[in-house]
Design a protein around this nucleic acid. Structure first.
Length: 239
DNA sequence: CCCTGATTCGC
DNA sequence: GCGAATCAGG
């Protein structure tokens, strides 16, 4: 089937009515859904709300949401387009790793915490609980049914920073990560000496230059790709 | 699994 | 230009 003027008009009309590409293809006959979509695009017809691409916000809707200089999306964008990332762990680490350096204002001047003498009540379902500090290292919870404040347990005399395990003394741990440090995992999570590479990160990437070389590989054009090797026993079944 | 529209790319 | 193949969200 070819795209005669009549068929193109029919396509335009139905597309404008909001018919799905499948419905249009059925109606016209002799063409696939993909053919309809492809033709609609080439004709420059309006884009439909794609299930894949989130509907783009018209800027006026949320001006308050300033684009925070978050690290992960920026690095994604900076990465070359035809590149695939092997370990998905990077994204997890990006979101999980606290950034002790910048990003955190030294003193929250904008939103001063409520005075310690007036603890904010926290709602738990119907009951209103009050949390009261009992000094360093502790708090008590008081519900409305509790007449007397519970006897606070003796607070520890002083709080010591947790001592890192000796084998971690000079290794890069989760809390040491920031956007300038290579987050390539060394060893396996759960092992006592699991840590991260810790070298200087390749700017815009979560890894140092060496590990970028391991994590990223250029994606070849489709015609140049080798078919994947047959999966060993136990691989997913091909239907 | 099904559906959707968008995109890519060999023809 | 065409449309199958592929992608990715619902």
């Amino acid at each position: 089937m070819s795209w005669t003027d009549e068929r193109i008009e029919r396509l335009k009309a139905m597309w404008a009515e909001g018919k799905t590409a499948s419905a249009i293809a059925d109606d016209l006959g002799g063409v696939s859904r993909n053919a309809v979509i492809g033709k609609a695009h080439r004709l420059g017809l309006d884009s439909r709300p794609s299930p894949v691409k989130p509907g783009e916000d018209k800027g006026a809707s949320a001006p308050a949401a300033a684009p925070a200089p978050s690290v992960a999306p920026a690095s994604e964008r900076a990465a070359p387009s035809r590149v695939k990332e092997k370990p998905a762990i990077a994204a997890i680490l990006e979101s999980a790793a606290p950034m002790p350096d910048d990003d955190l204002p030294a003193a929250p001047a904008a939103a001063p915490a409520p005075a310690p003498s007036t603890p904010a009540p926290a709602k738990t379902g119907e009951t209103v609980m009050v949390y009261r500090s009992i000094g360093p290292g502790g708090f008590v919870r008081q519900g409305p049914g509790d007449q007397q404040p519970p006897i606070p347990p003796a607070p520890p005399r002083r709080l010591m920073p947790a001592k890192p395990a000796p084998e971690m003394a000079d290794k890069t741990g989760l809390l040491d990560l920031n956007d300038r440090i290579c987050k390539w995992p060394m060893g396996h999570p759960g092992e006592p000496d699991f840590h991260f590479c810790g070298q200087q990160a390749n700017p815009g990437y979560p890894y140092c230059v060496q590990h970028c070389g391991v994590a990223y590989q250029a994606q070849l054009p489709r015609r140049d790709r080798r078919p994947p090797p047959p999966l060993p026993y136990g691989g997913p079944r091909v239907r």
